[in-house]
Amino acid sequence: KLWQDLRQRIMEKYHDDALKKQLEVQIQHLDDASGKLEMDMGKYEGLDEFLNDYIGTRTQYHLKREKLTTWIQQGELKM
């Protein structure tokens, strides 16, 4: 019983860390994507389309960052 509890907790911890890592990767991708958008701005038909895409990507970036911060502050993810 004790062993099972411990094993369960280790699995949860592993799962939690893996998901956190995955979120960090997503955040990095969004940051890279917005940098690429900026470089490729000339490929857009109009400035407004570019700005909309840029705002969208940066919003996702900041949203995920806020969530990661909250997650870390709360210690564990409550599912």
Partner: peptide, 10 residues
């Protein structure tokens, strides 16, 4: 809040 930051970035 995320959109607020994104607008500053833009």
């Amino acid at each position: 809040v995320a959109r607020d930051y994104a607008l500053s970035d833009t």
